[in-house]
């Protein structure tokens, strides 16, 4: 059996601009993620801790980046998402309410086994907020492969 061929090609690039992060969203994300650290929604607490004000959860910035990555994959793969095997990020600067995060997704290399290596950069204007990488499988995951029950 021949190795699967990735629908992605080296050099493909897409920029995705996310809507401005809001304080409401930080509260919503705290609830959804279970991370209730007050630096993310309690302004006096954040200032007391030496921060410029409340800051977004690092993993919210990564979630926005991952959603931009999936958007790019769907665009390059005829509308279907691809399976992200690995995703990693370094947080370079905090994201604050009002910030519009722009994510740049670049296909850096495609391996013989079909896995594509992706470079991720997220910035607010000129300020870089995240640098990351991902490994994307050559096709969408087969849903049936791990279903315990038969499908209806």
């Amino acid at each position: 059996m021949s190795a699967p061929v990735s629908p992605l090609h080296v050099g493909q690039q897409l920029r995705v601009r996310k809507p401005a992060v809001t304080t409401t969203q930080l509260v919503q994300y705290a609830g959804a993620s279970g991370d209730f650290n007050r630096i993310h929604y309690d302004q006096p607490f954040a200032l007391e801790k030496g921060l410029p004000g409340v800051i977004a959860h690092g993993n919210l910035t990564l979630a926005l980046t991952a959603s931009a990555l999936q958007h790019a994959c769907r665009q390059w793969n005829g509308g279907d998402a691809l399976f992200i095997r690995q995703l990693s990020a370094r947080y370079l600067a905090p994201v604050r309410p009002g910030d519009e995060v722009e994510v740049q997704v670049t296909v850096a290399s495609v391996e013989a086994d079909g896995d594509a290596h992706i470079e991720l950069r997220a910035a607010v204007g000129e300020r870089e907020v995240l640098a990351g990488r991902a490994v994307v499988a050559p096709r969408a995951e087969q849903p049936q492969s791990h279903s315990k029950e038969p499908l209806p």
Partner: peptide, 19 residues
């Protein structure tokens, strides 16, 4: 003191999609 945490890095390795 949780007020002194800062997110540095984060990564995920997945064998399959969570359902």
């Amino acid at each position: 003191d949780e007020g002194r945490y800062l997110a540095g890095e984060q990564w995920f390795k997945s064998e399959r999609t969570i359902v």
